[in-house]
Design a protein around this nucleic acid. Structure first.
Length: 549
RNA sequence: GCCGCCUUAGCUCAGUGGAUUAGAGCACUUGUCUUCGGAACAAGGGGUCGUGGGUUCAAGUCCCUCAGGCGGUACCA
């Protein structure tokens, strides 16, 4: 594809007076029934684009281009309104096959993030609260995006930001103190949050006590106090929470380099906000950023009591991350409910540190919905815990590797951005667009390879059947898919590709005998490249392939 | 109210302005093969791409209208 593209660009710049940045697109041709013997492998719509620019008939333009196109046996035809179709000789496919077989990584490499230092921040759970299904999603998504950047040559630092102080902590500790437990556990913390929230909502005196407790906890955290029962319980709860997070991430195969507790960036955020009174003027006793001037809305960065809000903490976080890593890019992955919030925060920082904002990318995802619109509320405690999903799928598949594959694929196959539905039954289905189906096809391919003979393939003189052409076309497009997935930070493109590839492989496998066939050696190479592609793509989704299943 | 996002098959979703007839999976109907690991493959039914306009040689895709849904909208995040 690259070869066709560069050849075309050369021809077009020779023939026509077009802007230097005029781009040429070559795409896989749709598999139409051909009217003649021509098999369209790839196509370009460049003639129609040029027609508009040059005010010429697109088919005429196409004729001029194809007349000059004479490259290594690639034949062309003009179709429809002015598409140029390309038919590649078998040797082109078999050469690519050989390349992928001998050095897969080199032939699918991408340099988009070469020598780039990237910080990815995701998951962001709050200590003293339970991990729910949304954390499962964002953790898996963040890991996959991190791997995409690593694949493209980047060095990735995975970090995690969470509220170790704040009203949710006060509510939890309020209920915990009332129970007067000797050695509370993470389960007690979860229950206490529900109780504390109810007390806060229903009981005015409790509410006042919790607000007061919040300030005390702020002090405990900021001054690192350990001298009271409350302080000891606070630190114990924090420790339990981070251990609980670590356990969960270990199960998912995600490793964070650093946790940024909210309290660790608060003072820096406060200081920066105070240093820029022209950006954060006083209003009603608070320091605010007037987003209306930029088509956004006003938000409070330092409240009436002089405490930094999350806005100021996010300011502190961005600067702290930059101090710690001197990043080329900071990717922040969160739910889409804070899109406008983040716009305001970044717009304010842009006023005095535009370089930092230019290097920041905010990616958002939607909520995870369960089939049948089951309602979830963390306040009432009747939501789905992340570990419940893990446990349920593990129990149903009877295997940790399969369970993770089912869950990860089930979540990553959707385009990031909107709300998605996660169906446990569908995720563990052995048929259809599921992680299990993909794993099976990869395992089967590996098994075939383990029992084929090692005779030397003769690909140079090998004639491909139509199923093999289609399979090899898919091999050729993998690199393009990866590039797009990196550019758009879109794991679902890889998921879609892999499913398509697995289906194509099954069709190939149905009609092309491997073991015992006279072409066993050549076809074993195709099976091997399929297996390598699956392993590579699934790895980018954070999915491992078992030996057997 | 204002700002943003969403609406594609019964359900869940893909779909860089391009290909007769808009694609998958699930579910449904029917077939293939004495299985290289059948957890397979093939065929079929099922769509006014929310509505109405506009731009374009070409619109599910871009612009506008309206309807429905979701999120945000000053001291939670």
């Amino acid at each position: 594809m690259e070869f066709i593209k560069t050849t075309l660009e050369q021809i077009i710049h020779d023939l026509f007076d077009v802007p230097a940045d005029f781009s040429v697109e070559v795409t896989p041709a749709p598999e139409l029934e051909s009217t003649n013997s021509f098999r369209a492998d790839f196509a370009t719509n460049v003639a129609m684009k040029l027609a508009g620019l040059l005010r010429k008939n697109p088919r005429e333009v196409a004729k001029l281009i194809t007349a000059k196109f004479d490259s290594s046996g690639i034949s062309t035809e003009i179709a429809g309104p002015g598409f140029i179709n390309f038919m590649l000789p078998d040797a082109y496919f078999t050469q690519n096959l050989t390349n992928l077989h001998t050095d897969f990584d080199k032939n699918i490499s991408c340099n988009a993030y070469k020598n780039k230092n990237v910080v990815t921040e995701f998951s962001d759970p709050n200590p003293f609260k339970v991990l729910h299904i949304g954390h499962l999603y964002t953790s898996i998504m963040g890991e996959s995006i991190s791997r995409l950047i690593e694949y493209a040559g980047g060095t990735v630092h995975r970090v995690n930001f969470g509220g170790d102080v704040g009203l949710h902590v006060a509510k939890t500790l309020y209920a915990l103190e009332n129970k007067n437990l000797q050695d509370f556990t993470i389960e007690d913390i979860a229950a206490a949050y529900v109780e504390g929230t109810r007390a806060y909502d229903e009981d005015d005196s409790a509410k006042q006590a919790i607000v007061q407790l919040n300030k005390t906890i702020y002090d405990i955290s900021a001054k690192d106090l350990h001298d009271s029962q409350l302080a000891q319980d606070y630190w114990r709860g924090r420790k339990l929470s981070y251990a609980y997070f670590d356990d969960f991430y270990a199960r998912l195969g995600v490793h964070f380099e650093k946790y940024y507790p909210e309290s660790s960036v608060a003072s820096k955020g406060l200081q920066i906000v105070k240093e820029h009174p022209e950006v954060y003027p006083e209003s009603d006793g608070a320091l605010v950023f007037r987003g209306e001037d930029y088509g956004l809305h006003t938000r409070v960065f330092v409240n009436r009591e002089g405490l930094p809000t999350y806005e100021a903490k996010d300011v502190g976080l961005l600067f702290t991350k930059n101090d710690d890593y001197h990043f080329d890019e900071s990717v922040v992955i969160t739910g889409n409910d804070i899109i406008d919030y983040m716009k305001v925060v970044l717009k304010s920082i842009e006023q005095y540190a535009p370089d930092l904002v230019a290097k920041t990318l905010h990616i958002t995802h939607g909520n995870v919905r369960l089939p049948g619109n089951q309602k979830m509320s963390s306040r009432k405690g009747n939501f789905i815990k992340a570990v419940d999903i893990l446990n349920e799928v593990e129990q149903k598949t009877g295997d940790k590797t399969l369970a993770l594959a089912a869950i990860k694929y089930g979540l990553l196959k959707y385009r990031i951005g909107g709300n998605i539905e996660f169906d446990v039954e569908e995720s563990i289905s052995t048929t259809g667009n599921s992680g299990i189906y993909l794993l099976y096809s990869a395992v089967r391919a590996n098994k075939i390879l383990s029992s084929t003979s090692n005779s030397k393939p003769n690909l140079e003189n090998y004639t491909l059947s139509s199923e093999e052409i289609i399979l090899n076309k898919k091999f050729l497009t993998y690199r393009t898919v990866l590039e797009q997935a990196v550019r758009e930070k879109a794991p679902h493109l890889i998921a879609s590709y892999l499913f398509d590839l697995a289906q194509t492989f099954s069709r190939f496998y149905e009609t092309c005998r491997v073991k015992g066939d006279q072409h066993e050696a050549e076809r074993a190479v195709e099976v091997a490249v399929f297996a390598k592609t699956m392993a590579h793509g699934l790895n980018l989704l954070g999915i491992n392939i078992p030996e057997e299943m």
